[in-house]
Design a protein around this nucleic acid. Structure first.
Lengths: 226, 226
DNA sequence: CAAATAGTGTCTCTTAGACAGTATTTG
DNA sequence: CAAATACTGTCTAAGAGACACTATTTG
């Protein structure tokens, strides 16, 4: 691992320092039109089936980035292929884990409900989706992580339309608004919402067909906004 | 350190995982009325006196929090007693440090220029203050850290008056505005600034005396805002 | 035509920003 | 009094939010 010899002011080599284990814990959030923001929980110990639900996490492996560890844990524990995990905060209380000295880097991932719900329904003993307001009393610092994750996602969605690109290629403003309502946790006025986001999107020139009511214009995300 | 035996799904004990060294690197920022935001740099290797300046940092010691490590490094390398360090980001590229596997947790600390300048003047060979715009070409990810630190502090000061409480107990709006101008890096209109911040402060009822011009009302930070 | 949904015109209220004025001190 | 600084009145432009209206479809 380490090839270059290095000594600090006290004459200790880099490898001589005790090193912490590093874990990642992830709040996977899914916006649901009916129930608002949902958070994915996994059973802490699938062998004993204790009734202890927690955020999915894992230990960082050698040569791995934090984002890779997050994606690996979501794949293993919930069969999910996540998008780009975002760092939230490092929890560093030396006594936060009685198994030893463990730092945890909290992350947030936002996924379409359609990608998460089937997994939870397939493996109800191991995976659960719960509205964020009801996800309390979790172990470690997981309540705090959920709170930070919700705040981060809500702030991002209040700034601009669907920054995590959960919508399909083309979409109506109605569907986009439903997504934003699920994230925000409350209704948004259709006309106000329209004026806020319209200039930040690109019209496809197409419109919906076959639905009741006047057809709706279809929009795409603007390429520049990322 | 670890007392409870713990095995993961692969049967490996917690302590069997290879663990990274964890470092902290800190952008100490000081608002200067003339030169804008200054960042504190220290000489990387004070023995060889190579011309390599970098942000102060250190390795996390056992049983220590990240914030404690930041304060320790600032005390040792610059003789500073810092305030509350804020976490910015974890840099986790496994190959970012050729000495080995090192994660770095970037932090930002804001200090009054009066606390930092004397140190830099006393030990010019080891400590330097440089305007943030001129602090480029630093080693590791330190350019990114400075950028994140500046963005974080500017966003906080644009939101509300002196969130880091750098001002003394009682202060005039003129002095508060000078601080905000140093953080923002540009002039602010006195009358607009006054109306923006006045309601978020508490008047002491006192006023300045002996200065030329009309005496200025003295304000205090409001206790509620933290 | 009724019902449903999409989209617009317009009014009010608030706020940022700019400018010019008044107020109160020193020298 | 002149100069300097503190503070306020007021105008304009822009935007959020609310409401009512028009537009276009299905059944």
């Amino acid at each position: 691992m380490s090839t270059t010899e290095y000594r600090d002011a006290a004459g200790r080599r880099l490898v001589d320092y005790p090193r912490p284990s590093v874990a990642v814990d992830t709040a996977v959030l899914a916006p649901d039109p009916d129930r608002g923001l949902l958070v994915l929980l996994v059973r802490r110990d699938s062998a004993t089936r204790t009734d202890a639900w927690a955020l999915p996490g894992t230990f960082l492996h050698e040569g791995e980035t934090l984002a890779d560890a997050v994606l690996r844990s979501l794949d293993q524990k919930a069969g999910l292929r996540g998008q780009a995990p975002r760092q939230l905060h490092v929890f560093d209380d030396p006594r936060r884990d009685d198994r030893g000295w463990v730092l945890s880097v909290a992350h947030v991932v936002l996924l379409p409900t359609a990608a998460v719900t089937p997994v939870a329904e397939d493996r109800p003993d191991d995976v659960q989706l719960r509205p964020v307001a009801e996800a309390v009393g979790l172990p470690f610092d997981h309540d705090d992580i959920v709170g930070m994750a919700v705040a981060r996602v809500r702030a991002a969605y209040a700034e601009r339309p669907d920054p995590e690109r959960l919508m399909p290629e083309a979409f109506t403003l109605r569907d986009l608004r439903r997504l934003h309502e699920a994230v925000a946790g409350h209704r948004l006025q259709p006309d106000v919402f329209r004026r806020q986001v319209k200039d930040q999107l690109v019209s496809t020139g197409e419109a919906t067909r076959g639905s009741v009511g006047r057809p709706a214009e279809l929009f795409r995300h603007s390429p520049s906004t990322g």
